[in-house]
Write a protein that binds this DNA or RNA. Structure first.
Lengths: 351, 351
DNA sequence: CTGTTAGCGCCTTCAG
DNA sequence: CTGAAGGCGCTAACAG
């Protein structure tokens, strides 16, 4: 193998790097160039009210000429409220979770760049067996003032208390907790579950339902359950509920066990739907199955299925916008986004 | 729906938050508590040589008593070398890419926590149509001194020059560029491709190969190609190479077009292998297919396939360790990790 | 409306 | 081996 060699220092030489030769332009340079005080520059940079258009222009011009980019680390240190935000991800082992988390991340970071927020990504594993105090100190040591929490469960007592403590501005996704400094964004889980199940039921003229629910202590699990229960009541048909824990394997096993006597299988997640569908195929019986989430993997299930598509990227993006609002002094609120019923097949996911 | 209400301020009340009541303990507090100077505390914190065991003990005890956690933002600001590191991810649209990227992230962040590095995640999209200067300034504005680059392509000229400029310590993965301040980690792509293809060939007594290559300008593409070429030469069998661009759809189409006349189909990625396999199933002919990467999706392909499993998490983790070494003054080097041949089927991926 | 003056929390010479 | 002093780049009262 041949590898590139090491002598390419054309554009920047080691010598003129910012470490030794001081290439980095600071607010001070801008001030000098514009002929104003440092604080004045800071004011126009941060859109403070009392600055004349004239000096604003001077400063902006200097900024442009010097290609000045403010050092967010310094800002964070001095202001105690400069937008440093932590993105807290709930990792799982399933690759389907990766897809969702990745969309959350991408939505978050994209919007964060727009709003000039710095994002630190944190995995739930890093917080495991840490006390509330430790978590708080960790966050503080990073000068973090805002938090985005995706997919926390009811067992996360530390996070629970973190939200209640209101030490940070927090936006949760899929967790309906709201207080003065915490907002929450999610979709209407109950009616989404109702809708997709009803569609599947009607299309297939089903008369009974096997429902594979999600994690026992998930916030969404409960809501989705309400949705399916309402459907069963309204249609006056029997409903068998079993706990699938969002696991493909458990859904598979439950399907082997209970699907035969039911007309349709409604799953609280796509992954479970896939597990159920494959089990049905192995049993060589047909039952309509529907899922929840709208992940790509659905295209590989072998059969078309109805599901609820959530725009995770948009959800994340909205969450960031909301967090920014909180950081700017707004109060917590509940935000409900919409969803979409889709039917996924292999052809749809090929790019 | 019922939502939690907002009056849970037991542990921390708004009043004693670090913003108003100053809960945050600083190095100054530690110094006072230990009865030494601030600078001394700093020295023991950063493992400086000349500190007596006695004062070291005093300081560490004070740290423990006060639950002091150093503020990394302040450290970054003042030291210009405190480990703030950017993780640069190459996003794609395929969910299979998500799985890999997620593992990279998790490996990176996990190891970064161990080594006390702060990680900022950056998507390639954020750097699109930014000049080298702009990228450099952006990085500097974040006080970033080290960079982890995953899956860059030969077309990324800006990144290329960024590495050559040696302004930052950089570790690339799957990109064999090394210089004084840049290392690279990867697996031996050529022999991995050779191995998995040979295994598949031998198992099936094949006499000709259709090879679906990766992205034209990927660094790995070339290497893997070498591997398959060596195999064809050694075995003295015909080899047809086509460019699949790592795309499932293209692999599918190429398979429809060329597979019939070849004995086995070797793909430069799992995603292409899946596309090829499904195409074969639709054509209703059988050809052994092998892939590359070892992603979960392989379990959903419908048929078992050989593939090369890379431990992405470990790769990322090693990359971080190497970056830390560079940041500590080490010189760039090439690191080669091992891989594993596996055969993936649905049962394997069920958890 | 603009400039002066203190820090933010930590690191890093440089004396002692 | 330890401490004093001067920043890092920026923000935030406070005067002027």
């Amino acid at each position: 193998m041949m590898f590139l060699e090491n002598d390419f220092r054309k554009t920047f030489s080691r010598q003129e790097s910012f470490r030794d030769g001081k290439v980095m332009v600071s607010i001070k340079d801008v001030a000098r160039q514009a002929g104003v005080a440092i604080s004045t520059v800071s004011k126009v940079l941060n859109n403070y009210p009392n600055v004349s258009e004239a000096t604003k222009k001077k400063v902006n011009q200097a900024v442009a000429e010097l290609n000045f980019v403010p050092n967010s680390v310094a800002a964070a240190l001095s202001s105690k409220q400069s937008g440093r935000v932590a993105l807290l991800l709930n990792m799982g082992h399933a690759s389907s979770v990766d897809e969702i988390n990745m969309q959350y991340m991408s939505g978050t970071i994209g919007q964060a760049v727009e709003l000039n927020l710095d994002v630190i990504t944190i995995f739930d594993s890093m917080l495991k067996n840490k006390s509330l105090d430790e978590v708080v100190r960790y966050l503080q040591s990073q000068s973090i003032t805002g938090l985005l929490i995706f997919g926390m469960s009811k067992d996360d007592h530390v996070l629970q208390r973190l939200i209640e403590a209101q030490l940070f501005k927090i936006v949760t996704v899929d967790v309906p907790i709201v207080n003065d400094s915490s907002s929450s964004v999610w979709i209407d889980q109950a009616s989404a579950q109702y809708d997709v199940a009803k569609k599947t039921l009607v299309e297939n003229k089903g008369k009974s339902i096997l429902y594979l629910a999600g994690k026992k202590n998930g916030y969404v699990t409960q809501e989705r359950l309400k949705g399916i229960q309402r459907l069963a009541e309204e249609e006056e048909i029997p409903l068998l509920v079993r706990n699938g824990e969002f696991s493909e394997l458990q859904a598979r096993n439950l399907t082997f066990r209970y699907a035969k006597k039911k007309d349709i299988v409604v799953c609280a997640s796509d992954l479970m739907a896939i597990g159920a569908m494959r089990a049905l195929m192995e049993m060589d019986i047909f039952r309509p199955v529907c899922g929840f989430d709208g992940i790509t993997l659905m295209g590989y299930a072998g059969k078309q299925m109805n599901t609820v598509r959530q725009d995770f990227e948009r959800i994340a993006s909205e969450a960031v916008v909301e967090l920014k609002r909180l950081l700017d002094g707004g109060w917590g609120q509940q935000i409900v986004l919409d969803y979409e019923l889709v039917r996924m097949k292999y052809e749809d996911i090929l790019v």
